[in-house]
Computed example of a mutant assay.
Amino acid sequence: MPVRTVNELPVSILDLATISEGTTPGAALRSTLDLAERADQWGYHRYWVAEHHNMAPIASAATSVLIGLIAERTRKLRVGSGGIMLPNHSPLIIAEQFGTLESLYPGRIDLGLGRAPGTDGRTAQALRRSASDDFPGMVDELRSYFTPERTGQRPQVQAIPAVGQDPLVWLLGSSDFSAGLAAQLGLPFSFAGHFSPGFTFPAIDTYRKNFQPSEVLSEPYVKLGLNLSVAETDGEARLQFSSTEQHFLALGRGRPVEIQPPREMTQQEVRAVHSSVSGAVVGSPATVKEQLGSLLDTAEIDEVMFTSYIYEHEDRLRSYELLKEVVDGA
């Protein structure tokens, strides 16, 4: 059953290794590793990084490499992809990569899969020698590489060391397509409410109504992604959240830039990005507790994964620390 109280809520982190203006990709990656270590200490449930390409503010393109570094520096967190954009890759290669990760960090690896390219059209062409629209078929092929051959089966290509490994496969989505596929396959589903909040309830409803039990799950499991900015006061949290608003404003104009320092946003700018950031959790600890309680009253979710575009690394650390204090002390 979905959680109904804040202190029962598993909370997780989605990190894009964001590059703030005036810093470097190396600094962004080191900040990711620092946040992951602290999240492990604070008791977060899982830590995912996402595949994006040719994006000025995002340094997590080599997603599998970064997952391995995070897993090595942490002990309790589940670590994974949010997600691997499967049509960019051969399923065999992804099976080999995640079979390696699961072999090294057994029981801690999540393989979240998306079907978008995670980039612009020109870069998608550079990434994919032969793009495939058969996402369900690619998912089936990928999962087959983790399954040992049965006696009497014809020998087939084996993804060493994936065979016999069992990373937890998730489907990710920002509409109801992957929700329906996740339900059909009996897999956990993660909805991208941090950039497609308008489709949250229809997608979750589609998944829950159509869920078929499987060897992976006996009942549906929904994780919701949300943007986050927590600070000591509502005003401070709101100001820090302006870096997120500026990020989506630049994306909407087709000119993504490095994460910008906080500033006062105009009403016109706030309206322009409302459809992308509505539903974000923003405020002081007391305000955030109310927002989470309201969310759990209205949405059938099992877990929330938060992402943040806060400009200063120390402010971002404090935001996640305060959030965990809210959940633990609710």
Rank of each mutant, 00 (worst) to 15 (best):
G180V: 10
L101E: 11
G99Q: 01
L185S: 03
D133I: 13
S190D: 14
P136R: 02
R129P: 15
A183M: 08
L142G: 09
L111D: 06
S144P: 10
G107E: 03
R129A: 14
L127C: 06
P161R: 01
P161A: 02
S178Y: 04
V139C: 12
F135L: 08
F146S: 01
G193T: 03
I160C: 04
A162H: 00
I109V: 10
F177W: 12
A162Q: 01
E141P: 12
F195S: 05
S144D: 01
W170V: 11
V163H: 00
P106I: 11
T151E: 15
L185A: 10
G186S: 08
R129D: 15
S144Q: 02
G186D: 06
G164Y: 00
A182H: 01
L171R: 09
R128W: 02
T119F: 04
V169L: 07
M138V: 04
F177T: 12
A183V: 14
W170A: 15
T151I: 15
P148A: 02
D166F: 12
E149M: 07
G198S: 15
S130I: 11
R143N: 13
F191Y: 13
R115F: 05
T151H: 12
S132T: 10
D110N: 12
S196D: 14
T119W: 05
L127S: 04
G186V: 07
L172T: 04
L168S: 14
L111K: 04
G107H: 02
F189N: 07
P117G: 07
L101D: 03
P117H: 02
L127Q: 09
F146N: 02
P167N: 09
P197W: 08
S196M: 13
D140N: 13
P167V: 10
S130G: 05
R122M: 12
L172Y: 02
F146W: 03
L111N: 09
L127W: 05
P161E: 00
P161L: 05
F146D: 03
A159Q: 01
V157G: 00
R150M: 06
M138K: 13
M138T: 06
T100F: 08
L187T: 02
V169I: 14
V157P: 01
S178C: 10
V139Q: 09
S190Y: 11
F98Q: 08
Y145N: 00
G118W: 13
P197L: 14
G137H: 04
G121D: 12
L181F: 00
L142M: 04
L187N: 01
D140T: 12
L113Y: 10
Q153Y: 06
S190N: 10
P188W: 02
D166C: 11
G137P: 07
R150N: 03
A131T: 11
V157C: 04
G118S: 05
F189R: 09
A162N: 02
R129I: 15
A131W: 13
L185D: 00
